[in-house]
Amino acid sequence: MEDIIVTKDLTKEYRGYKANHAISMCVKKGSIYGLIGRNGAGKTTFMRMLLGLSKPTKGEIQLFGKKGKEMNQERSRIGSIIETPAFITRLSAYDNLMLRADLLGLKDKKKAIHEALKKVGLYEKRGQKVKGFSLGMRQSLGIACAILGEPELLILDEPINGLDPIAIANVRKILLDLNKKGTTIIISSHILGEMEKVATCYGFIVEGKLVKEISEEEVKNNKVDLEKFFIKIAGGELDA
């Protein structure tokens, strides 16, 4: 199976502080990779490097088998949410997605935008300015932006923050549907219960290092309690 993301000794250092330390991993095509770590562990930093928002201090990234300048063009095949989704709040939901569609060079822009908005339940609000949106609606719009044009790879940093249970279930359905069509997903979340429902493999980041990777089969076969496993790896205390 093709490796969609490959990193070798990926390191990010800020003035002596290593936010990511020699992360080597690969994400297979068609998998849903759950990235788990405490707050400040380095998950977002890692995803930012994948998206080209931050330059690695050391190490290498390959996306879709390409590296260097060729790799940058491949980023048009990626949809993403990094931290809080950002929009031009004086524009409508539709206009914000139109901007994204223009940057991606999508062919049938209107159809793609309508589909994305319908999937996240914001089609009726498409003409409304984003400044009037609640946190959950903005998060949903961020997901619409990420899935616009059905990208081949989704990089999602805590995509279900601020969503109600119905919206969370909807996002889960969207991700599983896209994955069935072949989209590879790398997702970080603190809500381990949700991760267990979608992820096919997991990577645990502790203090900037990728310390452990396990597959969904290992979790099921060994009856691993993901929460306890994570707390043990992260070195946290578990109350009796």
Partner: peptide, 13 residues
Amino acid sequence: DGTMKNVVSAGIS
């Protein structure tokens, strides 16, 4: 607007 990340991550140099 905080939207520069949207532009830079779109695969354009």
